[in-house]
Amino acid sequence: MSHVGIVLISHSSKVVEGIKDIIRQVVHDVPVEVAGGTDDNDIGTSVEKVQGAIERAYSEKGVLLFFDLGSARMNAEVAIELSEYDNIKIADVPLLEGSYVGAVESGMGKSLEEVLESAKSVLNPNH
């Protein structure tokens, strides 16, 4: 069974490495790839790193991208526009909580839309 891939994008590689560790404690067969920091590993984000992470996380079920601050989102959008795939989406949700919930759902074999919806549910915890 293939799973929706998860890509974690942050201004800091430490942030995404840490979140990946947290996810890996409970979710094992979902591709989780990170794009943290700039090309020179300074604080910032890199389109090239996002593109690489998308390639590595890709399955025919698609890929969901999670980001931290506004400019990371812009680079995520650029990476999607430059890619040839049409089943890649951005989740506009808190990075840690959203990607954790998304990875769990992806592990259940859910579709890209379902994983995105469940990730959005972290914005409304009463649900």
């Binding site: 090309d39 910032g44 984000t45 389109v47 506004g70 400019s71 680079n75």
Partner: peptide, 15 residues
């Protein structure tokens, strides 16, 4: 610019 800048100005000027 899109691949080298790192901050918001990269995707913005790049676009």
């Amino acid at each position: 610019l899109m691949s080298k800048v790192g901050g918001a100005s990269g995707p913005l000027y790049g676009t």
